Amino acid sequence: MSYALYNKMLQSLWMAWETVFERITPLRSVYQSKFGICKIVVRAHRGSSIRFEDGTYVHAGDQVCEIHLDNREVLQLSRAVGADRAAIVTARRLREALKDIGRAVDTDPKLAKAKALTGITLLHRGIIHGLGFELHPLETKWMERISTVYLRLLLRMLNPEGAKRLKQQRSKLIPKMLMMSRASLVNRYASGVKA
């Protein structure tokens, strides 16, 4: 069996797992929606209080919007234009999605209680540069370990060069929490200020 065929089989299995996970997600969320290349899931924040650079706080129980890239779209891009070009296109589409999310958070009653936009990523050195997120360490070592294993596996599945990249940059591929307060999100992406 060729490496390319083996890789496609692994990717298909991963996408099947994601389909199962997407069916479970509504059970643990208040609301979810799709914005371009991103999905958001609104749920209650668990863990310690978080202070943002603008002075606002998120406390346990407050609603937050978790942002997730649509891995199917990222995989299709990677297959169509190659991993390097896919990263550039993904970054551009992410910026467009953030504009839609910012406007929705500002106007949609379903998102009225959301106090922040959050996410976890390995790609904080590149893809999110200049988007306005604050980077925070993950709250516990256990969470960091689980996220590291999951996100490195995801990188391996979605990027044909993923295995090579993992070997070359393993020490840099540490997950971080992306955070943006509601006020920062709206000011940056919904108020007409150039993002």
Rank of each mutant, 00 (worst) to 15 (best):
G55D: 04
K113H: 10
M143F: 12
A91C: 00
G61W: 03
G102R: 07
F133E: 04
T107P: 02
D84W: 13
R145H: 14
I67E: 02
L117K: 02
Q76K: 15
R85N: 12
K110I: 06
V58G: 10
I146H: 02
A112I: 02
I67N: 00
I127P: 01
A91G: 07
T56W: 01
K141T: 14
H68Q: 09
G55S: 00
A80T: 13
D54C: 04
R103H: 11
I128H: 07
K110A: 15
T90A: 10
T121S: 03
K115Q: 14
T90L: 10
A91T: 02
M143I: 15
W142I: 14
T148C: 01
R125E: 13
R93Q: 13
A87F: 03
R93C: 05
Q76H: 07
V58Y: 04
I101N: 06
R92Y: 00
A80K: 15
G55T: 01
A114I: 01
D54V: 04
W142C: 12
L135W: 04
P137R: 07
L77P: 05
G82F: 09
V105W: 00
K110N: 14
N71M: 13
V149H: 10
D62A: 05
V74M: 10
L138K: 05
S78P: 00
V81R: 10
N71D: 15
D70E: 13
R93H: 13
A104S: 15
T118Y: 13
E73G: 07
A83C: 11
